[in-house]
Write a protein that binds this DNA or RNA. Structure first.
Lengths: 146, 146
DNA sequence: ATACCTGCAAAGTCTTTGCCTTAGG
DNA sequence: CCTAAGGCAAAGACTTTGCAGGTAT
């Protein structure tokens, strides 16, 4: 692990310790794994990638991530619900969404979607075909921030 | 249901019929429900919102959506896997992702993320606070499109 | 010594499949 | 008629929780 990453790790742990969390092998190893990751990971993947010495149960990884999320060190991707979401695919009718992390409400963003240019660029540079995208904003709605 | 929506419904069903699907009460009602929806819906929500006359089992909704997705009439949001994904939240270090719908590979997008301006605008116009966002592109990677 | 953390196992939730009946074309 | 579609129920997969024992402070 590079000196920069080592520093990141220590600063995160210091922040958590100040909130009363204990520095355990599991906590350290989960954060290390996330720092080293080049993409979002599932609970199972994190558990598998942890050093065999510090490997811990998926249930424990779950509980660690729960705390890391509350501390805003980590975020969970997706709609923040267990279930899958489906929407109609009108070509002329793409929508982005605004989701409240407090109450879970989902509303459409009315402004024009700003990623068309990047999408075309990606199609050229990466060789991917049939590109579509999904853009979701997360935040606290006025009611929930009170 | 407005005449425009009625037309949308019929054109979708015609498209599906040409692929050998039968026009059933369930299929019609699922599509109607999605047309009327103002946000993505879960399987359970679709089942609940269907007219009591045409309401059908969640398992059936699942199978209908499966076909609609193959026909590219509907899309599924999220990481397209059952599991939840987590990533570290470096403030200076936001990433967008490119996901292959064929093999499921996930890679980072290196280009700058184009949604910062919209995010600030939403923060002002909607009253949402602590906005973050998630941008994922979906497509077929070069290997899978062969 | 005390509270937090952990592993194991069980419970819960949503998805996915099998089977048999129903119904579209 | 023939075959796709639907309902019910069971199987799967991942998450979430309870509990008893371990560990950081």
């Amino acid at each position: 692990m590079s000196p920069t990453n080592q520093q990141t790790l220590e600063s995160i742990i210091a922040q958590l310790r100040s909130k009363g969390m204990r520095k355990t092998a599991g906590l350290t190893s989960v954060i290390e794994t996330l720092i080293d990751a080049d993409r979002p990971l599932t609970i199972a993947e994190i558990s598998e990638r942890m050093d065999s010495a510090a490997r811990c149960d998926p249930a424990t990884v779950y509980r660690i991530l729960e705390k890391l999320e509350k501390a805003r060190v980590v975020r969970k991707l997706g709609m923040h619900e267990r279930a899958m979401y489906f929407e109609l695919l009108h070509r002329e009718n793409h929508h982005d969404y605004l989701l409240c992390t407090g109450c879970g409400s989902i509303t459409q963003v009315s402004a024009a979607c700003p990623v068309g240019a990047l999408e075309r660029q990606l199609q050229e540079t990466t060789g991917f075909t049939n590109l579509t995208h999904e853009l979701v904003f997360y935040g606290m709605c006025p009611k929930c921030s009170q």
